[in-house]
Design a protein around this nucleic acid. Structure first.
Lengths: 188, 188
DNA sequence: CCGTTCGCTCAACACTTGTTGACCCACTCA
DNA sequence: TGAGTGGGTCAACAAGTGTTGAGCGAACGG
């Protein structure tokens, strides 16, 4: 029993990761406001003070636990773009990363999260807009594409609407594809 | 000065309405959690205790201030349906009623609001589904239609994304229409 | 082997929140 | 005019929050 199975540094890293995981999960489930440091600490089997010691503040914990929306896309072909979008917005197996869900969950009620989300969605819109064929109002079209997928994701992942929860992912994608294309391409 | 300009009952009704208006506004702007009874009372130039006396609890105040999503639609023709949807989801002049915005704002972070929203959206989906032409998966299509418009509304009214804020409402409606129709009608 | 580091806990503070009961006073009405 | 109703305020409580500083004890390093 002279040497412990884990070094001090290992334990330290493990605890920090455990806290971060619990935080991500709770933030994704309940949002920023309703998630308390004490609850995160309890979920990670740790004292609340330790969370503060490691992350400094609840805000900073949130920032570290959450991850931004998926990186902006780069595609030139509309079909490829649609594929990328459908894939990136969580319709695939396993859903979105929990950090992204946490971000989205708090987007409407937390000013800082709202800023973050606005910026990330803005970048996403910019990326999609650049990839759109030379149509009128590419930015507006891109914004509609992105917010459409945002709405479906919210209804699916955050609200858990029954028709969406029960439908197979590729069926949703198949139905969504023509709609996205209609937004992306000039119908005239 | 023997008779006041307003009867006691009138004043009573007026202050109650003032409280309700302030509450609606604040709930719509900051959501349930971040809106405090004290802030509502201050906005209505009234003592916090009076808010409690009139509405019993913060929850009850929220319930009374908020109003559900628009009533389910009844339409048999797809084009008419699309018109109704575009009109009902706040793209028209003046935007959505503040009570509905309050509901949507708190939808993702407040369990009670989430229940309410799920139910209302469910009814809306049911209504749209019933109006859809006899296609495959009418409920799923309806859910996609509704969540699509939900996403655009969130991006527009709650997040204030620039491309949507700056675009004229009928332009948005014009671009959205083919997409909605693509969701509603079997492409095959 | 012993002093030191450091991961971690304990107890408490300061503050905000929803909520309550006692109270005041202008209006009502007999 | 005088008792009483009721709109409205004041001060306080109890619970929960983020946050902090002192301290314990096991792992570390010489």
């Amino acid at each position: 029993m002279s040497t412990p199975r884990q070094s001090r540094a290992d334990r330290r890293r493990a605890t920090e990761a455990r806290i971060l995981d619990s935080a991500r999960e709770l933030f994704a489930e309940k949002g920023f406001e309703r998630t308390t440091i004490r609850a995160v600490a309890a979920a990670a089997s740790v004292d609340p003070a330790l969370v503060m010691q490691y992350f400094g503040s609840k805000r900073e914990l949130f920032t570290q636990a959450v991850q931004a929306f998926p990186a902006p896309l780069t595609a030139t072909d509309t079909d490829v773009l649609v594929d990328q979008l459908l894939a990136s917005l969580g319709l695939k197996l396993g859903g979105l990363p929990e950090g992204t869900l946490a971000m989205m969950r708090s987007m409407l009620t937390d000013p800082a999260a709202a800023d973050h989300a606005r910026a990330a969605l803005g970048r996403q819109i910019e990326g999609v807009g650049a990839a759109l064929p030379a149509a009128e109002d590419p930015e507006l079209r891109a914004a509609l594409v992105v917010t459409t997928l945002l709405g479906v994701t919210i209804g699916h992942q955050l609200l858990g609407l029954a028709p969406l929860r029960e439908a197979p992912a590729d069926r949703i994608a198949a139905l969504l594809r023509p709609a996205i294309k209609a937004l992306a391409e000039p119908p005239e």
